[in-house]
Amino acid sequence: MVQVSDIDISIVIPVYHVPEELLLRCLQSIKSIRGLSREVLLVADGEDQTVCSGPAVRKFAEEADFPVFFHVKKHEGVSAARNYGISHSCGTWIFFMDADDYICGDAFEKIAPGLKGEEMDLVIMDYSMMTGNECSRHYYKKEMDFINLDSFQRDILKPQSGAGFVWSKLYRREWLSRSGVCFDTELSAAEDAEFVLKLALKKPKVFNVPYNSYYYCYNPQSAVHSFRQDYADRYINGMQKIRDDLKRENAMTQLQDEYDSCVLYHLLLIAVNFSFHPENPSKGKKRIHNFQKITRQKIFKEALKNIHLENFSMTRKVTLVCIRLHLYRVVEMIAKIRHRQRET
Rank of each mutant, 00 (worst) to 15 (best):
His75Glu: 13
Lys73Asp: 15
Asp48Trp: 07
Leu36Tyr: 06
Ile103Pro: 00
Tyr84Pro: 00
Asp106Tyr: 06
His71Gly: 10
Met97Ser: 09
Ala81Cys: 11
Leu41Thr: 05
Val68Ile: 08
Val68His: 10
Lys31Ala: 01
Ala61Val: 02
Arg82Gly: 06
Phe60Leu: 13
Gly35Met: 12
Val51Lys: 04
Arg34Ser: 14
Phe69Trp: 12
Gln49Thr: 06
Ser53Pro: 02
Gly91Lys: 03
Phe66Trp: 04
Ile86Cys: 10
Ala81Gln: 02
Asp98Pro: 00
Ile33Asp: 01
Gly77Arg: 14
Val43Ser: 10
Glu63His: 13
Cys26Met: 11
Gly46Cys: 13
Val72Met: 10
Ala99Gln: 06
Asp45Ile: 10
Gly46Asp: 14
Asn83Thr: 04
Ile30Gly: 00
Val78Phe: 09
Val57Leu: 09
Ile33Met: 07
Lys31Met: 06
Phe66Val: 04
Glu62Gly: 00
Ala81Ser: 09
Arg38Cys: 07
Ala61Ser: 07
Arg58Ser: 06
Ser79Trp: 12
Thr50Tyr: 04
Asp100Arg: 14
Ile94Lys: 03
Ala99Glu: 08
Val68Asp: 03
Lys59Val: 02
Ala99Lys: 03
Phe108Asn: 13
Lys73Glu: 12
Ala80Trp: 14
Cys90Gly: 14
Ser53Met: 03
Pro55Met: 13
Gly105Asp: 03
Val78Ser: 07
Arg58Gly: 05
Val51Leu: 00
Val51Asp: 01
Met97Arg: 01
Ser53Asp: 09
Arg34Glu: 12
Ala80Glu: 02
Lys73His: 12
Cys90His: 15
Val43Phe: 08
Lys73Gln: 15
Pro67Val: 07
Leu42Trp: 02
Phe69Thr: 12
Arg82Asp: 10
Cys26Tyr: 08
Gly54His: 13
Cys90Glu: 11
Leu42Val: 07
Ala80Thr: 09
Glu62Asp: 06
His71Glu: 12
Phe96Trp: 04
Asp98Phe: 07
Ser89His: 11
Lys59Pro: 01
Gly77Glu: 13
Gln28His: 11
Ala56His: 14
Gly91Phe: 02
Cys104Leu: 07
Ser53Glu: 01
Leu27Val: 00
Leu41Trp: 09
Arg58Glu: 08
Phe66Gly: 01
His75Val: 14
His75Gln: 15
Cys104Thr: 11
Ala64His: 07
Ala81Val: 12
Thr50Trp: 01
Lys31Phe: 00
Ala44Ser: 14
Asp65Thr: 05
Ile103Phe: 15
Phe96Thr: 05
Phe108Pro: 13
Ile33Leu: 10
Tyr84Met: 08
Pro67Ser: 09
Ser37His: 03
Asp101Asn: 10
Asp48Leu: 05
Glu63Gln: 14
Glu47Ser: 05
Arg82Met: 03
Ala81Asn: 04
Pro67Asn: 08
Phe66Pro: 09
Cys104Trp: 07
Ala81Thr: 06
Ile86Leu: 05
Asp101Ala: 01
Ile86Val: 13
Ala44Val: 04
Gln49His: 02
Leu36Cys: 12
His75Arg: 15
Trp93Gln: 11
Asp65Tyr: 05
Arg34Leu: 09
Gly35Arg: 15
Val72Phe: 02
Gln49Glu: 15
Asp45Cys: 11
Val72Pro: 07
Ala81Trp: 15
Leu42Gln: 09
His75Ala: 15
Met97Leu: 14
Trp93Ile: 06
Phe66Asp: 04
Arg58Lys: 10
Asp98Lys: 08
Pro55Tyr: 03
Gln28Tyr: 01
Arg34Ala: 11
Ser87Arg: 06
Gln49Ser: 13
Val72Ile: 08
Val40Ser: 02
Asn83Glu: 08
